[in-house]
């Protein structure tokens, strides 16, 4: 069974122009998916819809076969535990007034996960290669890359089945990007990743499948290897031609 299914999903803000139009995609457990497109192509909107932060104006989203219904509390509790996210800006994604331990423990406390919170936090920090004393400090004491590691630790602490990452390395310098890519590669052995990015080179390093999005429509999707080696759509070819590949620098 697939983790997430989007069937003919459309979305528009108010009565304005449609942001997404008839999107169909499926996320299979264990197969990382990259959603690639330019700014304004609707990729972040897809991510918000998949997180249950917005409702589609048409179409259907399902998680493990059940409709994603933000009003269904028991279902959403399980969904929140299974699906977590990492955001683009490591400076605005961590509450500056919380200690790192509280930031990472928030999903456990909010979702009432029965576990040793301190041990879980320490485990999550170890998973992202941060020392244990990180827990007692505040976000402003860390660099951008370290903050992004903290954000990733928060996302994995509840041991989710799926982590959605929105432009997770775009605010980082090249060296830090490479380290975060390595980290995500390690994490993807335990959880499925959905990477949203404008950088097809970055997602190609981590994803089994790609979805190419242009102006709210999927123009191409399939195994990453096929798309990268033989892009069929002109937009995909343009994206490949214009994006520097991280692999070239690694």
């Amino acid at each position: 069974m697939s983790l997430v299914d989007l069937a003919a999903v459309s979305f528009a803000y108010g009565r304005g122009r449609s942001v997404l139009d008839g999107v169909d995609l499926r996320i299979e457990a264990g197969r990382n998916l990259g959603i690639v497109g330019e700014s304004g192509s609707g990729k972040t909107t897809i991510l918000r819809l998949m997180l249950g932060l917005a409702r589609p104006t048409a179409g259907r989203i399902a998680f493990r076969g059940e409709p994603l219904d933000p009003g269904n509390r028991p279902f959403m509790r399980g969904f929140r535990r299974a699906v977590q996210a990492v955001f683009q800006d490591p400076y605005s994604s961590l509450d500056p007034r919380q200690k790192v331990a509280d930031i990472i423990a928030e999903p456990l406390r909010s979702l009432k996960v029965e576990t040793d919170v301190d041990a879980a936090v320490a485990g999550a920090l170890a998973s992202v290669d941060l020392p244990p004393d990180t827990a007692g400090r505040y976000p402003h004491e860390f660099s951008g890359g370290q903050r992004q590691r903290i954000a990733i630790a928060r996302a994995i602490v509840s041991r989710p089945d799926l982590v959605l990452a929105d432009e997770v390395v775009s605010a980082l310098d090249l060296t830090t990007r490479i380290r975060i890519v390595d980290l995500l590669k390690t994490l993807s052995e335990k959880t499925t990743l959905v990477l949203v990015s404008h950088d097809i080179g970055f997602v190609a390093l981590l994803c089994h499948d790609l979805v190419i999005l242009e102006k709210g429509r999927i123009v191409e999707q399939g195994p990453a290897r096929d798309i990268l080696s033989a892009p069929r759509h002109p937009y995909t070819r343009r994206l490949l031609a214009s994006t520097p590949r991280l692999a070239d620098f690694a």
Binding site: T134, R137, S143, G144, G145, Q148, L172, D173, T175, I180
Partner: peptide, 8 residues
Amino acid sequence: MTDAAPAL
């Protein structure tokens, strides 16, 4: 933004 910078 860097990753390698030590805690400040």
